[in-house]
Computed example of a mutant assay.
Amino acid sequence: MKKTSLLLSLFTSVMVVQAQKTLAEAETYATVDQAVGNIAFTHDGQLVYSHHPFFAPEIRVVKFDKKTNTTTPFPNLEWNTPRATDDNYLSNVLGIRNDENGVVWMIDMAQRDNVTPKIVGWNTKTDALERIYYLPKSAVPAIAQPNDMVVDTKHGYFIIADEGIGNGGDGSKAAFIIVDMKTGKTRRVLEGTRTTKPENTPTVINGKHLAVNGKDLFIGNDGITADANFEYIYYGPLNGPKIYRIKTVDLVNEALTDADLDSRIETYSDKPNNGGMSIDKEGNLYLTALETKSVAVVMAKDRSVKTMIQDENMVWPDGVSYNHVDGYMYVSAAQVNHGAVFNNGKDKSTKPFYIFRFKPVVEGVYFR
């Protein structure tokens, strides 16, 4: 074989291998000036997202206009304006989800202002407040960091994943927070147990450990989603090699103790250190893989882990959500690891911040 033919063959082989690395193409949907946290959608498919609270944004949540590439405060400026007269504003928001009724639900962790943690629901069909659920200290202690949630309208519960790293928490008391949609009753379950607390799998990005003052940061219960019928809750600590699942009816059952719940938890699959989690109608799980600038997928057919998309600009992929109008999964890139606390006091994040989208394996589940 001639040298040129050999080189061409090798080049073609490399290109084929590279093409097989991911199951889909990552499309840059938008570039914006502030870090994007979690993503949700209005009833007609407009993009709503939290500005990542790690960077203390002035406007907590925004709606994005693709035509003009601009944002407006969501649900309005008043709700994004702190004040001393009442608690009815957004203090510190990361977790944001929409339900099938067009309501966007936002978790206010309330760590920036002296207000009560809460879940705020805004009806995007009527452009009006749906309801506020205030979260008591018994369920959200000082070390809590309620990060993400499932909005289970079938059984009538918010199921919140609490990372356990608020106000100096080390993740060891990570938990679930269960909120009854009808009564507002709130409970804390599985605190500091084997599937909610982090394991010793440090976050390492480009060879650098995610650490504060030289100490690795370990984050507990983080990514969470539910299947299309709300039969199972899928979850796992950010720092941990496994995804777990439990039947929803068990997790919300007040008669079951933590020991009872633990015995009903199934180790579902392997996973990378991950942030957000979503799912499609066949049960394939989509996870933001922090260390590899990618979104991984756990295939329902055999629970194998594959790379769905990957992009050099996908630095700290955080939230991943499905848009029921255009059929794409959307994912943010928050650059959290470039923040000052992880870089000797210097903020190394750079504009622009990216929002990507991709086609899932099959139709996604949008009301999560």
Rank of each mutant, 00 (worst) to 15 (best):
H52A: 02
G45S: 11
I59H: 00
Y49V: 14
P53W: 10
T70Q: 14
T70Y: 00
F64H: 13
T71Q: 09
K63V: 13
I59Q: 05
N69W: 00
V48W: 07
T68C: 06
T71H: 04
K67V: 12
T42I: 06
T72Q: 14
I59D: 07
A56P: 01
D65L: 06
A56I: 13
V61C: 05
R60M: 13
E58A: 11
E58S: 11
T68F: 09
A40V: 13
V48C: 06
T42M: 05
I59R: 00
P53D: 03
G45F: 12
E58W: 00
S50W: 03
T72H: 10
D65P: 02
H51N: 15
L47E: 09
K66M: 10
V61A: 05
I39K: 09
L47T: 15
F54I: 11
T70V: 04
I39N: 08
F55I: 03
S50K: 06
T70D: 06
F54K: 08
I39A: 09
F41W: 12
D44S: 12
H51I: 01
H43N: 13
F55D: 01
T72C: 02
S50A: 14
F54N: 05
H52D: 04
T42P: 07
K66T: 12
F64I: 03
T42L: 05
P57Q: 07
L47D: 10
H51W: 06
